[in-house]
Design a protein around this nucleic acid. Structure first.
Lengths: 328, 328
DNA sequence: ATATGTATGCTCATCATGAGTATTAGAAGA
DNA sequence: TCTTCTAATACTCATGATGAGCATACATAT
């Protein structure tokens, strides 16, 4: 468009033009009733886990096609549900080893699959999300990681001046809800970013090129390569939000399952416990599933019906959660 | 990550490496009670309107900062609310005149501003959205554009074989709701993409390098440069979705306004009419506004109270529209 | 004074949601 | 066989949120 008017821009003269590199990264998720998983590969840099990814190539017709190609090649997985997540490109994150200091763009995608053993590249494996973000799992009560996080964040807030302090405190309260006790499961990225800014995750110190201080000892959660933990946080937040208004969980479920399986899986993803009876009512009212006619006794107690997803709902439900009082 | 294992990829040998170009584009929106607007610039290519945009430069610390810099330079506007929308990069859309057929990436952002006269670059001006997407405005009844679209889409569906036909018909029904009469205001992008695939918008013919056929005569809505109409559709869909659970409308409103102003503005954006009393109840119940104490007689009928946005709600409302029956 | 065109107040039936209580059906152990 | 466990299912109930309207209050134009 207008960009050709470079005559007006003195700085443009520099012409470093360190062309940005563009990577496609995939957050591939799967889940069992008790564990949400993400597929990671172990790479050279510091032996940290990372996400499957590869550079965008001109052969790729579309970005998504390029991503699928990379994933198929690296893990032998054929992705079903895929959606674009976000494009990351901050210069000073991700310890980019770009020559001229150009941008290292990373276009991240979220993919949901029914778990299968990954092949292709040797070092790919499924990992529990919460190994990277332990404070996100409230299924068994308040995560212990918060025992470290809460005081550290509060100290960080106090370290600023009056205005800054109040600003930080509000932000901490909004994302972690220490005082009010309100935990909003979707704010995963906001929480991670806050921890990053407060220097409480090791990536922050790495990017700032500070020596590994004593703080790092306390840093909760396993770090990941580059800014992959941030990407993971983005993906989890997006997924947690989405299961509330779109039947995406079914992309993760086997062909048939019990209602408790379904509930446990949702709990694993959202990191909170749900009210059983009401969960079932919700699922049945919305017509999300139908009985297969079979029954399983493997649940421990009274045998449970097996159900399957009703594909029709994808066509049915018109507007999910409209909040506007429409006319007519 | 794994991408360094290029030994396994024979194709990589080609090394065309036609480095992708990366543009930052902005969909800058404003609104009055009767018209939703977008800021466009008129460019050389075929004299079509386009979005303000510029190439990512290595000086830009973050992508968003780069975008703000471009917009400030091109339009003299200082953006407030900004969020990343989507990254577009299909090779065959947007008549990219890239040398080696590399990707022309475009990282699109949505920005909301209170309308002000743009300056800087000469040709920037505010335009009514619906000039580009006339079928999206149902405020005064069924848009006339659908008179052309409905039969054309149905003919397109019939043109396929049995399976394809049914698939297309379902998709048409889901997005346009001709039979059921259910219009989902947020599906803006899906509708545009459907029209594109059906060859009913002129960009489709341009990208396919087909001569301007008779169909184009019928093509509803003014076209835009490159794939900017698609980006606009994405932005509108996102905004329509967002106003339902985040108080973003206030980014577009003046300091004080009447409840009817607010309602009309929301209607302008969402393209549908709302129930007045219930709209007010919703707004007041949620504590979104507070009275300024002033009254205006400029409304025509009974004088209206002037209200302003209550900034506190940004901190208050914890979870917007949670749909899961949480425990405790 | 009357007609018009909002702005605001209130009512009401219906539906969705949060929290429980009660009952039922297999499996494993006493 | 009789308990005891562990779930699966069935229902209840109070509260809130929503969709649709009716009625009344204030201005300006005729």
């Amino acid at each position: 468009m207008v960009s050709s008017s470079s005559a007006r821009r003195p700085k443009a003269r520099v012409q470093h033009h360190a062309a940005p590199t563009v990577d496609l990264s995939a957050v591939i998720m799967a889940a069992t009733p008790d564990e949400p998983r993400v597929l990671t590969v172990r790479g050279q840099p510091h032996q940290l886990d990372g996400l499957p990814s590869g550079p965008l190539r001109s052969e790729h017709r579309t970005l998504e096609a390029g991503l699928r190609t990379w994933v198929a090649e690296q893990t032998q997985l054929t992705l079903g549900y895929v959606e674009q997540l976000y494009t990351f490109g901050d210069r000073d994150r991700a310890e980019a080893d770009i020559q001229g200091g150009g941008h290292a763009l990373s276009i991240a995608y979220l993919a949901l699959v029914r778990e299968a053993r990954p092949a292709g590249l040797a070092h790919a494996a499924w990992q529990n999300w919460y190994g990277y973000l332990p404070w996100e799992d409230w299924r068994n009560g308040r995560p212990k990681a918060l025992g470290v996080i809460e005081p550290a964040l509060k100290a960080w807030a106090r370290a600023g001046g009056k205005t800054l302090r109040q600003f930080r405190e509000e932000r901490i309260e909004l994302t972690f809800g220490f005082e009010s006790g309100t935990w909003t499961d979707e704010r995963v990225l906001e929480r991670y970013e806050l921890l990053y800014e407060a220097g409480l995750v090791s990536e922050a110190l790495r990017d700032a090129q500070k020596p590994v201080s004593s703080k790092v000892r306390l840093a909760p959660g396993q770090p990941m390569a580059l800014d992959h933990r941030r990407i993971l946080a983005t993906a989890i937040g997006r997924l947690r939000g989405k299961i509330k208004y779109r039947p995406v969980i079914f992309e993760l479920m086997p062909a048939s399952f019990t209602l408790l399986d379904l509930q446990r899986t949702v709990e694993a993803l959202s990191g909170v416990r749900l009210h059983k009876q009401n969960f079932r009512r919700l699922v049945e009212m919305q017509g999300l599933v139908e009985e297969t006619g079979e029954i399983t006794t493997e649940t421990g107690g009274r045998p449970a019906r097996l159900v399957r997803f009703r594909r029709e709902v994808l066509i049915e439900r018109p507007a999910p959660g409209v909040r506007l009082p429409r006319l007519r």
